[in-house]
Design a protein around this nucleic acid. Structure first.
Lengths: 234, 234
DNA sequence: GAATATTTTAATGTATACATTAAATAGCTT
DNA sequence: AAGCTATTTAATGTATACATTAAAATATTC
């Protein structure tokens, strides 16, 4: 069921004090969002266990956790399926992310943070500017991710964070795929600046509104790209 | 770690063709949301396994799934902890439910459903009226739940549904607790009618707005009750 | 030869034995 | 007796053997 290709699973995870189950979750998650375990592919428990150098037990546990996070589907006699994402899935997920992030922006604005709480978010915006200036899209994407997760962090809601990360993982492959197909994201940087400014001023309504528009715009663009290039299952 | 009290786990689940793991998830979930496994209590794997009449393996798998759904916390040497809900948690969860349901209302309105698609939602509203008339709060709560989950169903989004159910489960005990403490929910019935009317007319904006207000109002009332009665951990 | 019944196979589901390890306890040392 | 160390204990974490079962392969019937 696998081509036997060697897969480097050393990853960036210090296996120290970590159960095999947790390690399996981390490694499999990384393999999936990096598209090294191809979306749509099926894998036997024993295959994954062999690959990860452990027995089936922790692998089974890991796949159940990953299933709860929407990354795989465990189908009794057909192996563990790496779920793919269609334009319709993107629409669904971005709708949810839009709501969660808009809520996060609103909550962050209501917190009355002091200036030094925004250092990371500001840094992210600056990195985005710099990346854009030298046309480094990878760097831009990393900074963009940082800004968005920082926004979530500033909301102070652990639960929003959990759901957010879950869905960001689900769309990760599609995001990477469109990174070099999309137009230069100048508007994004502008939007982020405006949102952060509103949060800083405690203007929850504006923060919410602008961020919402920002996300809806991104959704529209991404889905159009996926459809234009015929990516029906990423 | 348990008082040994007999617990009826026959539940309403036909164990037919269902794995022990799935069965354990269903039974434990029900015991938790019914408060028969007290919030805050800790339980050993072996204790739960004995209670459910199966080995530790499927119980372990079940607890991992329930942990991913936010109902328990698996703490290595302290057992499986049934998570309790504070007023702050309620605030967090209701904020998320508000966004998800408002989104669902908007999406439902955009679907252009025909009249017979609203039969269940209408039935729920009617049941709520009847329950209110005879002051049967249990029946009212059931019908209210039905209306809300029907709204989610009408959104057509499986993912919204999954997250929705997850958080509804998490607040279930608090909800039951406040059911007989809250004022007569006449406004709720009115709101539901208005939202459904907007959805029927395809007025997404209104559906969203009214439902949002409806939920924010409910949140405020519930949290006030919890604090007023000193329920810091439900 | 197509359709059906039977056997085989291979994967998952489950129980259990064992390994590991954090906490509790007992035993020293001063 | 307080504080440290060693030992014991009990729970989780993991591997593995076994049970179950869906799918595949084979045999059988007409």
């Amino acid at each position: 069921m696998n081509d036997g290709k060697h897969i480097d699973i050393s990853a960036h995870h210090s296996n120290k004090n970590m159960s095999n189950t947790q390690h399996a979750v981390n490694v499999l998650r990384e393999l999936i969002i990096d598209n090294r375990l191809a979306s749509g592919s099926n894998h036997l428990e024993s295959e994954l266990a062999k690959m990860l150098g452990m027995s089936r037990t922790p692998v089974r546990e890991a796949t159940l956790i990953l299933e709860a996070q929407g990354l795989v589907e465990v189908k009794p006699r057909h192996g563990i399926k790496i779920l793919s994402i269609s334009p319709e899935d993107m629409d669904e997920i971005y709708n949810i992310l839009t709501e969660l992030e808009s809520l996060a922006a609103e909550l962050a604005a209501q917190k009355g943070y002091t200036d030094n709480e925004f250092l990371v978010a500001e840094g992210a915006i600056q990195q985005m500017d710099e990346a854009l200036a030298r046309e480094d899209r990878e760097a831009w994407a990393r900074a963009d991710e940082l800004f968005h997760s920082e926004l979530i962090r500033l909301s102070g809601s652990e639960r929003i964070g959990n759901i957010f990360r879950m869905f960001v993982d689900q769309v990760s492959r599609a995001r990477k795929l469109t990174l070099n197909l999309r137009p230069t994201p100048t508007q994004s940087n502008e939007d982020h600046r405006t949102v952060l400014q509103a949060i800083r001023k405690g203007d929850a309504k504006t923060a919410r509104k602008i961020h919402r528009q920002h996300r809806l715009q991104a959704k529209k663009m991404l889905i159009a790209l996926l459809e234009q290039y015929g990516f029906h299952n990423v």
